Simulated assay, not measured.
Amino acid sequence: MSGERRTPEGLRYGWTTGACATAATTAAYTALLTGEFPDPVTITLPKGQTPAFALAVEHLGDGVATAGVVKDAGDDPDVTHGALVRATVRPGPPGSGVSFRAGPGVGTVTKAGLPLPVGEPAINPVPRTLMRDHVAEVAARHGGSGDVVVEVSVDGGEELARKTWNPRLGILGGLSILGTTGVVVPYSCSAWIDSIRRGVDVARAAGYTHVAGCTGSTSEKTVAALHGLPEDALLDMGDFAGAVLKYLRRHPVPRLTIAGGFGKLSKLADGHLDLHSGRSQVDLAALAATAVTAGGGDELAARITAGNTALEALRLAEAAGVPLGDAVAAGAKATAVEVLRGAEVAVDVVVIDRAGVIVGRAH
C-alpha cells in the first residue's frame, strides 16, 4: 500500500484494523454499485491522511460484494500484522443507513462497560464512523442509497484474539476492529493501553470496588490468590503503569493493587511510569540508597551499586536482613499516589520475585 510514513527513528507507521476495514468496505460498496473494484482503494483518515490499499480479495456476486485488505502494522509488533481483513457489503432495507455485522474472526460484545452495547459486533465507534462516511461518499459518487449491511471478518481472528485482552473484556468470538486515527504508531502499544482502559471500564460497569494492575502472569496469579479477585478485575498492566494510574485518576475504582516483579516495581519507585526495559532502566545506585533508608549499611550499599541486576540487589539485602522489597513497594506506592493526584483510589503494592513469592508489600 502507498502513503508510507516513518517516525524520526526511521520506523514505519502502519494502519489500524479500522482503516483496513474502511478500505475494504469502500472497495466492496464501489464494486456493488459499479461492477468494478478500485484497486488500490484510497480512503481519508480522521487527520487527513489518504493511504491507498491494495486489494488481496475481490468477489462480486448477485447483490453482494466482498473485498479484503492485508493489514500492515508497519514496524509495530502488532498481533494483527499480516491479518486479512474482509468486508462484505450487501443492500440493507430502505432508510436503514449502515448497519454492522460480525463475520468470522470478529468478536461480539458480551459485557457492559465497553463503548458498544452488549450484543453488538466489536467494531469500535471511530471505525464505524469512518465506514459510514466512506459509504456515504461512494453512494453520492455512484448514485447509491447508502443503505447497506457491512459484515467485517478477519481470517484467523478467533485464534489471534486469544493473544489479546478480548476474552477477559467479554469480547467473544474474535478480534475487535480498532483505531482512533487509523494510523499505528510503532511501539506506542496503543492497542494495549486502550485495552487497559477498557478493562477499567468493564470492572467499573461490573461494580467491582477492587482492581489489580499486574506486570505479568506470575504477579497476576499471586495477587488473584492473595485477594480473591475475579479475572475481569485483573488489569494486564504490562509495562504501562502510567496508563493504569492516569485512567484511574479520571475513572476511579475505590481500591487498586499494583503487583509486579521487584525490578519493574523498583523502576516505578524511582518515578518511571513506563517500565519497559528499552525505555527505563533499574537504577542500582537508587536501590542502594533505598537499602540504606531501610536500615542497610555502607557495605551493603556498595555491593548493590556494584551489582548487575535488581534481583541481585534484593538477594543481597535479604541476606543482610534489610527489607528492601518493602521499601521498594513503599516507593512504588508513593509514585502511584502522586500520579493519582488525590483521586479516590486506595493503593497497595505487592512485590514478587520470579517464582511468585511475595518479597515486599506496602499498604
Rank of each mutant, 00 (worst) to 15 (best):
L314F: 13
L175Q: 10
G325I: 05
H227A: 05
A285L: 12
A122Y: 09
A285H: 12
T290G: 05
R12I: 07
T25K: 00
T44L: 07
S153G: 15
V118N: 02
G199N: 08
V337A: 08
E299H: 08
G342D: 06
T42G: 02
V135T: 05
T110N: 05
P167S: 06
R168A: 14
M237C: 01
V154D: 13
P186W: 03
A24Y: 07
R361M: 02
G321D: 04
V322G: 00
D72K: 10
G263H: 07
R12Q: 14
L178A: 10
V202Y: 07
V223T: 04
S96L: 07
P230M: 11
R128M: 12
R341F: 00
L314S: 11
V69I: 15
D72N: 14
D62W: 03
G92I: 03
T17Q: 07
G103A: 13
A54T: 08
A288S: 14
L316I: 04
A27C: 06
T215S: 11
V152H: 00
T22D: 04
A302L: 10
T218L: 11
T7M: 00
L248K: 10
A241G: 01
R204N: 00
L324R: 02
A31E: 09
D147M: 07
A136P: 00
A329Y: 03
L178N: 06
D39L: 04
T25Q: 00
D62V: 12
L248F: 13
I193S: 08
L256D: 11
R101I: 14
A28F: 06
E58R: 14
G199H: 04
A343E: 13
V345D: 07
R132Y: 01
L284M: 05
G321W: 06
R90E: 11
E120G: 10
P40F: 06
L116Q: 08
F262T: 05
L265E: 00
L169F: 13
K221D: 09
R6V: 07
P121N: 15
F100G: 05
M131C: 10
I171V: 15
G74V: 06
V282S: 00
P40H: 08
G295M: 05
L226E: 11
S153L: 05
V183F: 03
E4K: 15
S190P: 02
A269R: 01
N124E: 15
A31Q: 04
G356Q: 06
R303C: 01
A27V: 04
D232Q: 10
L32D: 09
S277K: 04
R5T: 12
K246C: 04
G18C: 09
L178E: 14
D155N: 00
P93G: 14
L316Y: 08
T25H: 03
L284S: 00
G107E: 14
A225G: 12
A67L: 05
K111P: 04
E151M: 09
T50K: 15
G3I: 01
A294P: 06
G107F: 12
V138K: 02
P38W: 08
G170E: 14
A54V: 07
G119H: 11
R279Q: 02
